[in-house]
Simulated assay, not measured.
Amino acid sequence: MNIQIALFAGLADRIGTSSLSYAYPHPERPLTAASLKEALAETYPSAANLISASFVAVNQEYAAGDTPITAEDEVALIPPVSGGEPSSDLPQDEALSDLFIITEEPLSVEEITAKVIAPDHGAALTFTGTTREWTQGKRTVHLEYEAYVPMALAKLRQIGGEIEERWPGTRCAISHRIGHVDIAEISVVIAVSAPHRAGCYEASRYAIERLKQIVPIWKKEIWEDGSEWKGHGLGPWDPRVPGEHLLSDD
């Protein structure tokens, strides 16, 4: 069976392509997310560790190991992200799409914040992520962001839905840059409004932590003497885990 696999970030660099046409070498075994990773690790031993740490996405959803794969499925291998729901069933109207954006254009804090202001809300909070010049003694020249765009947008909408469910009445808008982002430029803006400030603070923190957990966006730090893809830094990475733990004090 031949399948097309989308690859991203350091995994695409390691294998040497962002779109892999792969002939599954074990016709006697069912093709599942787990068996695909095992076969890819055998085929590309130099990338085996990164493949092992990655998740398979099938039709823009993170897949359990026993998820079957067919030649007609949209398949991607998702390495740990920097920074669930049936995305195809989410409303795709213009207003919702405008709340969650991935773009190569500069971001406006004022425009994104204005999307969530509501007459019955007494609190609005905007988180702005910018490119830091120095990290652990290394000087960053600029960042390069890459995304699995359709799935990333679906996951941003999922975060908005989770926030609405957890803090009813709260409104959230998220915009994220891809491509070249210079020092001190804005890479992500998360705007949240709510009837009261406590829920607004909590929802804003939840949004950025959840984004880092489940949204397939990667960044490459470009230094004066090299570069490196940066992955998820919040411990064991499992984007299928619900986000309830993110606001825990433990």
Rank of each mutant, 00 (worst) to 15 (best):
residue 28 E to M: 04
residue 43 T to G: 03
residue 46 S to K: 13
residue 48 A to D: 02
residue 29 R to C: 03
residue 26 H to R: 14
residue 41 A to Y: 00
residue 56 V to M: 11
residue 27 P to R: 11
residue 29 R to Q: 15
residue 55 F to V: 06
residue 66 D to Q: 13
residue 35 S to P: 07
residue 45 P to F: 05
residue 54 S to C: 15
residue 61 E to C: 12
residue 53 A to R: 15
residue 58 V to W: 01
residue 29 R to G: 00
residue 23 A to R: 07
residue 30 P to C: 01
residue 35 S to T: 15
residue 50 L to N: 07
residue 24 Y to H: 05
residue 23 A to N: 12
residue 60 Q to A: 07
residue 39 A to L: 07
residue 41 A to W: 00
residue 43 T to N: 05
residue 53 A to W: 03
residue 47 A to M: 07
residue 53 A to D: 13
residue 50 L to D: 14
residue 37 K to W: 02
residue 26 H to N: 13
residue 57 A to I: 04
residue 59 N to F: 03
residue 70 T to C: 10
residue 56 V to T: 13
residue 50 L to R: 14
residue 47 A to Y: 09
residue 29 R to F: 01
residue 27 P to K: 11
residue 69 I to V: 12
residue 50 L to G: 13
residue 63 A to N: 08
residue 43 T to F: 02
residue 25 P to Q: 10
residue 41 A to M: 08
residue 34 A to Q: 14
residue 38 E to D: 12
residue 27 P to F: 09
residue 45 P to S: 12
residue 43 T to I: 01
residue 34 A to N: 08
residue 58 V to H: 09
residue 60 Q to I: 00
residue 49 N to W: 00
residue 36 L to E: 09
residue 50 L to M: 14
residue 64 A to Y: 09
residue 64 A to K: 14
residue 69 I to F: 05
residue 68 P to N: 07
residue 70 T to N: 08
residue 65 G to H: 11
residue 40 L to K: 03
residue 27 P to C: 08
residue 24 Y to A: 05
residue 32 T to I: 04
residue 24 Y to W: 10
residue 54 S to G: 10
residue 45 P to R: 05
residue 43 T to L: 00
residue 59 N to W: 10
residue 53 A to G: 14
residue 26 H to Y: 12
residue 56 V to C: 10
residue 57 A to M: 13
residue 57 A to W: 04
residue 64 A to N: 08
residue 61 E to Y: 01
residue 24 Y to E: 05
residue 28 E to V: 06
residue 33 A to Q: 09
residue 50 L to H: 11
residue 61 E to V: 03
residue 58 V to F: 01
residue 46 S to E: 13
residue 34 A to F: 07
residue 26 H to G: 00
residue 57 A to V: 04
residue 66 D to I: 00
residue 39 A to I: 09
residue 62 Y to M: 06
residue 30 P to N: 09
residue 23 A to I: 04
residue 47 A to E: 12
residue 23 A to Q: 12
residue 63 A to F: 03
residue 70 T to D: 11
residue 54 S to N: 10
residue 39 A to G: 09
residue 70 T to W: 00
residue 43 T to M: 03
residue 66 D to F: 05
residue 51 I to G: 12
residue 34 A to E: 15
residue 37 K to C: 08
residue 25 P to M: 07
residue 34 A to W: 00
residue 59 N to L: 03
residue 69 I to T: 08
residue 48 A to E: 12
residue 53 A to N: 11
residue 49 N to P: 01
residue 62 Y to V: 06
residue 57 A to C: 11
residue 65 G to W: 10
residue 50 L to Y: 10
residue 42 E to H: 08
residue 33 A to G: 13
residue 36 L to C: 13
residue 46 S to D: 13
residue 27 P to I: 04
residue 62 Y to I: 09
residue 31 L to E: 08
